[in-house]
């Protein structure tokens, strides 16, 4: 729990977990102050992250506003990930990989078919279906934060997809600052070197020791 001058008026929750099979999406709701851990359960995992503020469907995690909020094209430790209204939603607090992407789109089923990935469900369609299942109706599907995706940004602007470095057990941990539902996709991204879907584990805890 966050160290507040007045204790937070809710009971501490015990550790919650969700498994996201390769090629699917999973969701987990997180309360203000909790820690969200996203872990690779297989080699080369990519976790495409979407976040929706609880109770306000018009507020969501915005990768574009996150970049400009920190004047950074890349995600680094301590960076605030912000909403489409430029308010902090979460902070990257721990990271065993160090390579993430804030620039590439979510795949669609049509894109994967056109690029010879076969008949896999695209990230866009999978996330849209999960939103519907959860009864969430945001006014648009935001672009993702692609955790563990390895695309090198050169100083001349060139984007070079490279072999994903995530190994089983690698993780990121965020401190979440607002109640929110997070949807995490383990779908094929269609980005070379990062296009072999692997399972993910999601964990939510009040404190680091619980992980």
């Amino acid at each position: 729990m966050l160290l507040m001058t007045k204790p937070i008026a809710r009971e501490a929750q015990s550790l919650r977990t969700a498994h996201v099979a390769a090629g699917t999406v999973g969701g987990i709701d997180v309360l203000q102050g909790q820690l969200l851990k996203i872990m690779a359960a297989g080699p080369g995992a990519v976790a495409s992250l979407f976040g929706f503020v609880s109770g306000d469907p018009q507020l969501f995690l915005s990768v574009h506003h996150t970049r400009v909020f920190s004047n950074s094209y890349v995600l680094g430790l301590g960076m605030r990930l912000v909403t489409n209204r430029r308010r902090p939603l979460m902070v990257l607090g721990k990271d065993t990989v160090g390579t993430h992407d804030l620039l590439m789109p979510a795949s669609t089923t049509a894109y994967l078919q056109a690029h010879r990935y076969g008949n896999q469900q695209g990230c866009v369609e999978a996330v849209a279906a999960e939103l519907k299942r959860l009864g969430l109706a945001p006014p648009k599907l935001p672009d993702p934060v692609n955790l563990f995706m390895h695309v090198r940004l050169h100083q001349d602007g060139r984007l070079e997809p490279l072999q994903n470095k995530a190994a089983p057990g690698d993780y990121v941990i965020f401190r979440v600052l607002r109640d929110a539902m997070f949807i995490v996709a383990a779908c094929c991204t269609g980005i070379p070197g990062n296009d072999q879907p692997a399972a993910l584990e999601l964990r939510v805890a009040e404190d680091l020791a619980e992980f």
Partner: peptide
């Protein structure tokens, strides 16, 4: 029109 999808196609920010 989408800068994000253009980026993927061009493999460049620019």
């Amino acid at each position: 029109l989408s800068p994000v999808h253009t980026r993927r196609e061009l493999q460049s920010l620019f």
